[in-house]
Amino acid sequence: MKKIYLHPLPVRIWHWINALGFIILIITGAQIRFAENMGIMSFETAVDVHSWLGFILLANYFIWLLYYLFTGKLFKIYIPPFWRPVEFIKNSIRQAKYYGYGIMVGDKNPHHPTPEHKFNPMQQISYLMIMVLLIPLQIITGLMLWDPQLFSSIISLIGGIQIATLIHTGLWIFFSAFIIVHFYLATLGHTPMAHIKAMFTGYEEEHEEH
């Protein structure tokens, strides 16, 4: 069994802060939205926690962004090879087939992560969308709701506070579902805890079979 250093420290710090933050933001988001039915905390506390965490994750996002920008890995890891579209699509289908069928019948995972190619094609496209589009969008719309007056010009640019709310709530719904699936997918290593351990240690164990 060989070990690959897949998750550098800044990425691991970012990941776990993000993970914890996401969960609490989802819950406090629900508390704000369902104030009449949920009693985890008061409306005011939920808003306070939500606001604090929003800013923590905003800062956290920059840890991720700056790390990947300065190391130059952003392009390699996150950008799919759009210049080889056919190969990328083929690889994506092969990966989807693996999760949908191969994994059941004991096929080998077609993707072998390396520090330069950490993600399989499906992860690559998903994380690119999440990190470059959805999280910034959630942060920006979150800021709009945090102080609608301060960000009024951006609010009117996107078509009003209702649109900002729609995006923010829509992404809250998406991330709520995503985080469950993400956690499940994290258990699909060669052992259920393999990927999770790797996210703590940084080292992903490449099974000899692979």
Binding site: R33, L145, Q162, I163, T165, I173
Partner: peptide
């Protein structure tokens, strides 16, 4: 477009 009160005027279908 320009009026939204957190909780009070939420869009129910999103729930």
């Amino acid at each position: 477009k320009d009026f939204y009160v957190l909780g009070l005027t939420k869009i129910k279908i999103l729930d």
